[in-house]
């Protein structure tokens, strides 16, 4: 479990980010403000702002200067989730109805675009060309990753290499950007920024693979969205890719027969989850997570030996124990 206590030491700073986020849409269009507050209250782990705050500790830490940036990164993430829910036609997220379900596709699309533009205006205030470039490239990679994944949907031919490339772009890029941005704005040394980039990349990869594993292995109530959600979107993730590549002929045949139907009943998703578990795909996927966790810790070894580095290592170690 990505324990809350890992973040305990930045709790005060995170509260400032939360406060900033809550006040951001004050005086906006009323419909946006209420939906946005609903989203903020729905929770979320806020890992991106947390990494920005932690990375900023390697430079001249000025919390009032970092808080808006950390909040902007959460805003970009929120915008992408709102649009993802429209793209996936998802009704539930974090155990609550999505904005799409409550307010419709059009409204969600406009809210997502609005939040993204608000994030831009916050980032622009730093007047930092390097920061702008880091975050715009992270955004481009995120969108390209989503488009790449979509173009392969229902083909069920995604290989390991393509899968890693997709998750690198759609998830790891913004986590990397969050670490890098915090360090850059605080004026950290180049070698520290490089170490944080590596750390962020590996954490982002580990985080997404864990997410993909949880999609099969945990209860809907725990993960807050339907089990097998990716499969319902026609997307194969690491556990299924493993079965299709290394599973027995019978397992491959049974999974493909279900997948080729393109729409699945609950019992069929459950059956795929069983096959995934029986073939050792979960164990394989978690071994990959562990490799990324090890790489993240190794990257952190190149950071100064301060308490923040210990926290970053603890976060890395806690990822493979995540339950939601």
């Amino acid at each position: 479990m990505l324990k809350r206590q890992v973040f305990n030491e930045i709790d005060d700073d995170m509260k400032k980010v939360e406060e900033y986020l809550f006040n951001m849409l004050h005086n906006s269009y009323e419909g946006f403000e209420s939906s946005y507050r609903y989203l903020l209250k729905s929770g979320g782990k806020r890992i991106r702002p947390a990494f920005t705050l932690l990375a900023a500790r390697y430079g001249k830490e000025d919390i009032d200067r970092i808080v808006p940036l950390a909040a902007a990164l959460e805003l970009v993430h929120m915008a992408s989730l709102i649009h993802d829910d429209v793209v996936d036609a998802s009704d539930m997220r974090r155990g609550r109805p999505t904005i799409r379900k409550l307010c419709g596709n059009d409204f969600s699309l406009h809210l997502g675009a609005y939040l993204f533009a608000r994030a831009l205006s916050v980032i622009a205030e730093y007047q930092d060309e390097q920061l702008n470039t880091i975050l715009s490239l992270a955004g481009i990679k995120m969108c390209s990753g989503e488009i790449g994944q979509l173009s392969e949907a229902y083909s069920f031919k995604t290989g390991l290499h393509q899968y890693f490339y997709n998750i690198k772009r759609k998830t790891a890029s913004l986590v990397t950007g969050s670490c890098q941005a915090g360090a850059v704005v605080s004026g950290a040394k180049p070698q520290i920024i490089q170490a944080l980039i590596k750390y962020g990349h590996n954490i982002g990869m580990a985080y997404q693979i864990t997410d993909d594993v949880l999609d099969f292995s945990k209860d809907e109530k725990i993960i807050g969205k339907p089990v097998g959600n990716d499969l319902q979107q026609g997307i194969t993730t690491l556990p299924v890719i493993y079965v299709l590549k290394y599973g027995s002929e019978a397992a491959q045949k049974e999974i493909l027969e279900i997948l080729e139907k393109k729409t699945f009943e609950t019992h069929e998703v459950k059956r795929i989850s069983e096959i995934v578990a029986d073939t050792g795909a979960i164990a394989f996927s978690m071994s990959i997570v562990n490799k990324y966790v090890e790489r993240a810790i190794k990257a952190a070894e190149n950071l100064p030996d301060i308490r923040t580095t210990q926290i970053l290592k603890e976060i890395a170690r806690s990822i493979n124990g995540r339950e939601y």
Partner: peptide
């Protein structure tokens, strides 16, 4: 998704030094 990608490309174009002044107006 293509629309979102375009927004990011727009931001990327505006990231350069001489263009930064236009980010607030565009956002």
């Amino acid at each position: 998704l293509i629309g979102d990608l375009m927004y990011c490309k727009i931001f990327s174009e505006l990231s350069r030094f001489e263009m930064q002044q236009y980010i607030p107006a565009v956002s």
